[in-house]
């Protein structure tokens, strides 16, 4: 296996590194300090958002640096912004699952403004069907909406890219959470809890 060296530009700095490295590794390899925008290095924490422009391409894409291999002529900028403002809600405040849909619009009023630009779908580094998910949530189909966001790493790129300030990732998470909160009632777990409560299990050391 022959190592091929490539030259690229990261955060405005010229970087030379083997093409078997991802963007973060390449930046470190070239001796540049980098701590912010680095997280799990496995593509699940959503910290290492970057904008990437490849050579001879007019396209600029948003990606996760730890998941993107360095390429010849690549231009990269880390996007380390603070988490945008959150919509707040407490699951415990939902007294009744019949009310979730109406409360959803109190919490996320912007959802009905979706202009269907599709920007969130394009920007998502996990290729989630974001816009569709928001639409499903708006229709009250939370379980279905939530399924679309299984791989969401909460990188907030869709949020920062939404012209209507919808927080699609948070909508997706909301959909998942209410589904669990109201619908997961496993009898095997409940039986065991009950048995423990009755004192049927004790540990002998």
């Amino acid at each position: 296996m022959v190592k091929k060296m490539v030259s690229a530009k990261i955060n405005g700095h010229a970087v030379t590194a083997p093409d078997s490295m991802n963007i973060i590794q390449a930046y470190w390899h070239a001796g540049f300090p980098r701590i912010s925008g680095v997280g799990c290095l496995e593509g699940v924490c959503g910290s290492c958002r970057v904008m990437v422009r490849r050579v001879d391409s007019g396209k600029v894409t948003a990606e996760l640096a730890c998941q993107t291999m360095i390429e010849e002529g690549m231009q990269v900028q880390f996007l380390s912004f603070q988490t945008p403002k959150q919509h707040t809600y407490r699951l415990a405040d939902f007294k009744n699952s019949w009310d979730v849909q109406s409360q959803f619009f109190d919490i996320f009023p912007e959802v009905s403004h979706c202009r269907h630009c599709g920007g969130c779908d394009v920007v998502c580094p996990k290729d989630i069907d974001v816009e569709n998910g928001v639409g499903l949530a708006a229709m009250g189909r939370f379980r279905e909406a939530g399924e679309l966001f299984v791989e969401c790493v909460m990188c907030n790129l869709c949020k920062s890219g939404c012209p209507e300030q919808i927080a699609p990732n948070q909508v997706g998470l909301f959909a998942r959470r209410v589904t669990a909160y109201f619908h997961i009632r496993p009898s095997n777990l409940i039986n065991r809890l009950e048995a423990i409560r009755r004192g049927e299990f004790r540990i002998t050391r």
Binding site: L91, R176, R177, T179, A180, I184, N188, L189, L193
Partner: peptide, 22 residues
């Protein structure tokens, strides 16, 4: 078991079978 229950009440999903058992 109590921890799993707490997590579900925080809104965490788990794999279940068709009867809803974990």
């Amino acid at each position: 078991p109590e921890v799993v229950r707490w997590l579900i009440q925080q809104g965490m999903q788990f794999e279940v079978n068709k009867y809803g058992d974990l």
